[in-house]
Amino acid sequence: MLPAGKVPPEILEKIFKTLGSEDERVLVGPGTGIDFAAISFGDKATVASTDPITGAVEDIGFYAVHVNANDIAVSGARPRWFLVTILLPEDSDEELPVRIMRDIDREAKKLGISIVGGHTEVTSGLKRPIVVGTVLGEVEKGKLVIPNGAKPGDAIVMTKWAGLEGTSIIAREREEELKNVFGESFVERAKALIEYISVLPEAMILREFADAMHDPTEGGIANGLHEMADASGLGFRVFLDRIPVREETARICEFYDLDPLALIGSGSLLAAVPRDHARFVVERLLAKGINAAVIGEFLAEKKRVAVANGEERPFPRPCSDELWKVFRE
Rank of each mutant, 00 (worst) to 15 (best):
A4H: 14
E13I: 10
I15D: 06
E22R: 15
D23I: 11
D23S: 12
V26M: 14
V28K: 03
G31E: 04
G33D: 14
G33R: 14
I34G: 13
S40C: 14
S40V: 14
F41G: 11
G42W: 08
A48S: 09
A48P: 02
I60M: 07
V65R: 10
H66P: 00
D71N: 14
D71P: 01
G76Y: 05
A77L: 05
I86R: 13
S92F: 15
R102P: 01
I104V: 12
K110F: 03
V116M: 08
E121F: 00
E121Q: 02
L126W: 10
L126N: 04
T134V: 11
L136Y: 13
K143D: 12
L144Q: 08
A155Y: 00
I156S: 03
S168K: 13
E173V: 05
E175P: 01
I197H: 04
P201V: 01
M204Y: 02
I205Q: 08
L206W: 05
E208L: 09
F209P: 03
H214M: 06
T217M: 10
G219Y: 07
G224E: 05
M228A: 09
G233I: 08
G233P: 01
G235F: 04
E248G: 10
A250H: 11
I252P: 05
L261W: 11
L263E: 10
L263N: 12
S268E: 10
L269P: 04
A272S: 14
R279P: 00
A287W: 03
A293K: 00
L299C: 06
L299W: 06
K302D: 06
R313H: 08
P314Y: 10
F315M: 12
P318R: 14
S320M: 12
D321E: 04
W324K: 15
R328H: 09
